[in-house]
Nucleic acid binder design. Sequence first.
DNA 1: GCCGTTTTCGGCCCGACTGTTTTCAGTCG
Length: 579
Amino acid sequence: MTKKPISNQEIAAILRGVGEYLAMQNVPWKPQAYERAALGVEEMDRELGDIYKEAGAKALLGVPGVGRGIADHIEELLKTGKLKYYDSLRKEVPVDVAGLSRVEGLGPKSIRKLYELLKVRNLKDLEKAAAAGKVRELKGFGQKAEEKILKGIEFAKTVGVRFRLGQVVSQVASLVKRLQALDGVEQAVAAGSYRRRKETVGDVDLLVVSGRPEDVMRNFVKVPGVVRILAEGGTKSSVRLASGLQVDLRVVPKESYGAALNYFTGSKEHNVALRQLAVGRGWKLNEYGLFKGTRRIAGATEEELYAKFGMDYVEPELRENTGEIEAARRRALPKILGYGDLMGDLQVQTDWTDGSASIEAMARAAAARGLSYIAITDHTKRLAMTNGLDEARLLKQMAEIDRVNRKLKGKITILKGTECDILKDGTLDIEDKVLAKLDVVGVSVHSHFNLPRQEQTERVLRAMRNPHADILFHPTGRIIGRRAPIELDMDRVIAEAKKRKMVLEANSYPDRLDLRDAHIRAAVAAGVKLAVDSDAHAPEHFPLLEFGIAQARRGWATRDDVVNAWPVAKMKACLRKDG
DNA sequence: GCCGTTTTCGGCCCGACTGTTTTCAGTCG
């Protein structure tokens, strides 16, 4: 019973694996069904283990893409940690499908053939066979295929799969700029998961409007930084940059711009759902437009496209087929937070601890960014390595803030705050009587990341119950790609936040983005307020707020849900010690 | 295997590019 229950990620991986094996066997339709279910599981904001424990097997049917059959599989996985069906498939064709699929151009059919004819089970076998020239002899393969495989293996070995959004923005911006400057290019934009502002992107999709696609293609594959051309056609090309990032380019005529942008922005699931809507009305939707017979009835702009379907325009950040299409059809999509909507920032560090700049410099930078207030929230003494503040220094800092406020009067308001450490037992690192003097008390976990779920949750809940605590900063503590989130029962955290009018943070730092989108959505649905903060440690960090706003948008948050999108007085009134 | 303002059965999105193809399967997005 003490054994850790299987996680959503693990369940999704197994379902995906089943789909891959079925695809290898040429089974129709089922592979897509398993893949869809895997995606549905991944996108859940709650652990299936919790849902199952609470509401039983029937509740599993609520997961998008999960029906009777797969619900049974999931129940078996939750009960035993294993899936007999999966194990028997693996036994039949004992191949590392996931590993081999990472090789560019290798899909289930080829993998099966390689196994049956050359006994290739994994990347190592494949490399050996290809190097020995055995692959080219197979029917359906050839010289080129073998070379491609060898290069693909090299790549699969060296590079991780996804990039953080923050890692690619400048590369993408310069690519777009370069394309815009080309002769004959009317428009160039980045689409794909980049435009949807997903926290990580697997590749970058660029869209260009031009009447001279060949010229654009010729120039594109020669852009500096391109180390490999994966495909080059008349209207579609694919390259690999030195950074490992794959970039796809598509060129379309002007009248198709909206349809192409929609198609290339995705998500794939959103697109499929839209196309199904089209089919249902006897239309056809592709990247060139929306067609009734051979007549184009929409497609020049995305707005036109959605209007034709009789729906609200769907912002790119919402296009994940997680209910946005139904809501848009009911004309019930929320008006999500805008990129210019933030008025303040409630987590800012200075050179009193691990920030690089003074209170005044940070305040001026925030004002230049258009903010009308910030809270200074330096670390506390438990975080000794950051020179965290004790009570005495915190009091001194408050006096300094008073001084700077007088100096900057009319430019910006500086609030007194803290990023107070949550100790192992859930108590706080600063005495209550000092916390009571602050405008904004943020509390956060910076230690003991590996406590068991029950203990970790109790710890955080206890901190939230401190009468002075206002905001739970970066609730899960994750660092994308580097540190797993702490084990936290987010349902209980959200319920506690609701009960105590505590604000949850959506941290904008691109490698935190904590809360993640699904949790934001759950918090919003529960009526819990959010703070979208920069967590700035330097004056140049305020633009990072864009990432936090994006994440809040992906979580369907509106201006009403985000306290620092409000004027300072209203925001302060909402913090729970006044509420 | 999933799913339902046409349906509880019979559908299931659509097109570009590649390689090895004499007309297309496989892969990808």
